[in-house]
Simulated scan of single mutants.
Amino acid sequence: MNVKAIITGIVLAAAVAAPFATMAQDGGPVVDIGYRHGNLRNAQQNIVQAWQLVSDAQIDNDDRLGGHAARAKALLTQADEELRLAADAANRNHW
């Protein structure tokens, strides 16, 4: 593998990871499942996207959603954590 390919890979990885790093800073869910568990990773990516959309809705509605959006975000964070645990269990069971 040549140097140009390595640098390109690093730049692409950084570009993909940047939005998720931002979400991690504000307490939201993160994508931390590797490509080995593609379905679980895809589910995590969808959770991160849903969490961000709920955050956008909160902003658009000036946080006047009766606490339901905040509760949804808490449940999305919990689902994200459960997916991480599922991937960890699969790893322990050599899947």
Results as ranks from 00 to 15, higher is better:
Asn2Tyr: 03
Asn2Phe: 03
Asn2His: 07
Val3Gly: 05
Val3His: 15
Val3Gln: 15
Lys4His: 13
Ile6Tyr: 08
Ile7Phe: 08
Thr8Pro: 04
Gly9Asn: 09
Val11Leu: 12
Val11Met: 10
Ala14Gly: 11
Ala14Ile: 12
Ala14Arg: 08
Ala14Phe: 08
Ala15Ile: 14
Ala15His: 01
Ala15Glu: 07
Ala15Thr: 10
Ala17Asn: 05
Ala17Gly: 03
Ala17Gln: 03
Ala17Trp: 00
Ala17Ser: 06
Ala18Ser: 06
Pro19Ile: 00
Pro19Asp: 00
Pro19Arg: 05
Ala21Trp: 06
Ala21Met: 10
Met23Gly: 09
Met23Ala: 06
Ala24Gly: 15
Ala24Glu: 14
Ala24Cys: 05
Gln25Pro: 02
Gln25Phe: 09
Gln25Gly: 11
Asp26Ile: 10
Asp26Ser: 06
Asp26Arg: 12
Gly28Met: 08
Gly28Lys: 14
Pro29Phe: 01
Pro29Asp: 03
Pro29Ser: 10
Pro29Cys: 08
Val30Gly: 04
Val30Glu: 12
Val31Glu: 00
Val31Ser: 00
Val31His: 02
Asp32Leu: 08
Ile33Met: 03
Gly34Cys: 02
Tyr35Met: 15
Tyr35Glu: 15
Arg36His: 04
Arg36Gly: 08
His37Cys: 01
His37Ala: 00
Asn39Thr: 12
Asn39Met: 11
Asn39Lys: 15
Asn39Trp: 07
Leu40Glu: 02
Asn42Tyr: 13
Asn42Ser: 13
Ala43Arg: 15
Ala43Gln: 13
Gln44Lys: 04
Gln44Trp: 00
Gln44Ser: 04
Gln45Arg: 12
Gln45Leu: 10
Gln45Gly: 15
Asn46Gly: 15
Ile47Ser: 01
Gln49Phe: 09
Ala50Glu: 08
Ala50Ile: 02
Ala50Cys: 04
Ala50Phe: 02
Gln52Ile: 07
Leu53Asp: 11
Val54Leu: 05
Val54Cys: 00
Ser55Pro: 00
Ala57Asn: 09
Ala57Leu: 14
Gln58Cys: 02
Gln58Phe: 01
Gln58Ile: 03
Ile59Gly: 07
Ile59Thr: 13
Ile59His: 06
Asp62His: 10
Asp62Cys: 01
Asp63Gln: 06
Arg64Lys: 13
Arg64Asp: 13
Leu65Gly: 08
Leu65Glu: 05
Leu65Tyr: 03
Gly66Lys: 01
Gly67Ser: 01
His68Glu: 13
His68Ser: 13
His68Asp: 12
Ala69Ile: 01
Ala70Thr: 07
Ala70Glu: 14
Ala70Tyr: 05
Ala70Phe: 04
Arg71Asp: 11
Ala72Ser: 12
Lys73Asn: 06
Leu75Ile: 05
Leu75Glu: 14
Leu76Gly: 02
Thr77Val: 10
Gln78Leu: 11
Ala79Val: 00
Ala79Asn: 13
Ala79Tyr: 06
Leu83Cys: 07
Ala86Gly: 03
Asp88Lys: 10
Asp88Arg: 09
Asp88Phe: 01
Ala89Ser: 11
Ala89Gly: 02
Ala90His: 10
Ala90Gly: 07
Ala90Leu: 14
Arg92Val: 07
Arg92Ser: 07
His94Cys: 09
His94Gln: 14
His94Asn: 15
Trp95His: 14
Trp95Thr: 14
Trp95Ala: 15
